[in-house]
Each structure stands twice: as structure tokens, then as C-alpha cells.
């Protein structure tokens, strides 16, 4: 469960990231956070993975209040949350297999575990035949699938996807959304940050709409209303 309790994030003194946000995302939900550029969507994603700290209010992941999380505890939090970025953020000097394995290696998983889990996850995202390629040898859609594989490999309870289809064509975008739905069907909470109207409208899942850093709509089975 993710709880935002009256959360405000200010950049410098007067630039509002998000303002007075209170909401709860329950375990296993698929939630789309939508809004125009600068509405605070990415700030919410960054608050969940402690890339940003709330100026006011509380952010709670499960039973863990991460509002004032110590720097040394951040890696532990991030090992429990999968993150997918619009710009992929793959390690350029590592192959597909190594990129995915890296998420397990940082958490101290054994080599046996890595050898058994990574090929399975690569199979889920359909990249088992390209495991020895480097990121620059893959298409945008394939790179995004590697990112999803990496975010899944440590079996996170929460997956945060920040504009995962932003750099993809419509066919690849639909593939990625199907993959996220499949992951959600396994019980993983998915938080999808997007401004893709088509994607949101076809999902028919919960939609939280932000405008100027504030929640202006929270629909259980909603549509893109802006």
C-alpha cells in the first residue's frame, strides 16, 4: 500500500511540485497518474522511490514511513520497488542479461539464484534471444522491455512506470502496456505515470488526474479527462 498524507513538494521556495496530496493506493492496484507536463506526475513517482523528499506531509510505503528516510536506507527501499523510466536508463556498458542481473546483484542475491531467475524474466519480456546484446544494439521497445525485466527481477510489490511509452511508437507502446497489465495480474501494484490519452482510456483502471500539483480527479475506472 502507498499512502500520500497531505504531501507537498516545493522546489526551491515557490516552485510547486505537488501540493496537499492525500491518497492511498492499495496493494495489487493498477493506477494511472495523468496530467499535463509540469502537473506533478513525475514528482509523485520520485517521492515514491525517495529520489525527492516531501517538503510537508508523509509518504508511507507499506508500513514504512519514508518521508525522512536516511540516505543509507534508500537502496533498501529501491530494491523493493521496480522502476521503469521514459528514457530507459540502462547501463550502457552491460549486456541485456547483465543489466537485468544487476538489480539482483546489488541486493546480494546468490549466483545460482541469478542464473535461474534472470532467464525466466527475459523470457517473460520476450528477450531471451537477445540477452548478450548491449543497449545500443536494441530498438526503443526492446530497451524498454529490458527495463521492465530489470524492474521485475527482484519480484517487487510495487512497480512505478514513469512515461514508459513516451519514447515508443504505438505498437511498441501497446506491447509495454500489455506487459504492465500482465505484471499487475501477478499481484504487483502498478503506478503508471503518463500523459498518453489512448493508453489511459483503453486500460479502464483507476485514474488520478493532476493539475498544477494538485489532484483534480480520482476515478475508480476512469478516463483521461484533460
Amino acid at each position: 500500500m502507498i499512502t500520500f498524507d497531505n504531501v507537498t513538494k516545493l522546489y526551491q521556495k515557490d516552485i510547486v511540485g505537488v501540493k496537499d496530496i492525500s491518497l492511498t493506493i492499495t496493494a495489487g492496484e493498477f493506477v494511472s497518474i495523468v496530467g499535463q507536463s509540469g502537473s506533478g506526475k513525475t514528482t509523485m513517482a520520485k517521492l515514491i522511490i525517495a529520489e525527492e523528499r516531501a517538503t510537508k506531509g508523509r509518504v508511507v510505503i507499506g508500513d514504512w514511513d519514508i518521508t525522512g528516510i536516511k540516505h543509507s536506507d534508500v537502496p533498501m527501499l529501491r530494491r523493493q520497488i521496480g522502476v521503469v523510466f521514459q528514457d530507459f536508463k540502462l547501463l550502457p556498458r552491460k549486456t541485456v542479461l547483465e543489466n537485468v542481473a544487476f538489480a539482483l546483484e546489488v541486493s546480494g542475491a546468490s549466483n545460482t539464484q541469478i542464473k535461474s531467475v534472470v532467464p525466466q524474466v527475459l523470457k517473460i519480456v520476450g528477450l531471451e534471444s537477445k540477452q548478450d546484446r548491449f543497449p545500443h544494439q536494441l530498438s526503443g521497445g526492446e530497451q524498454q522491455r529490458v527495463v521492465i525485466a530489470r524492474s521485475l527481477v527482484h519480484r517487487p510489490k510495487i512497480l512505478v512506470a514513469d512515461e514508459p511509452t513516451g519514447n515508443l511508437d504505438s505498437i511498441n507502446a501497446q506491447d509495454i502496456i500489455d506487459l504492465l497489465k500482465r505484471i499487475n495480474s501477478f499481484g504487483t501494484t502498478v503506478v503508471l505515470v503518463t500523459h498518453n490519452r489512448e493508453v489511459v482510456n483503453t486500460l479502464r483502471k483507476r485514474v488520478i488526474t493532476l493539475d498544477h500539483g494538485q489532484v483534480i480527479a480520482d476515478q475508480k475506472s476512469g478516463k483521461y479527462i484533460l
Partner: peptide, 16 residues
Amino acid sequence: REEIGIMKLVGASNWF
């Protein structure tokens, strides 16, 4: 620098 940031976002500790 980007690589370092990515490692951190994936959950790597500072010494790792």
C-alpha cells in the same frame, strides 16, 4: 555520471 545515477536508482549502495 548517468551510469552512476542508474545504479543508485536500481538500489545499489554507495560502496557498490
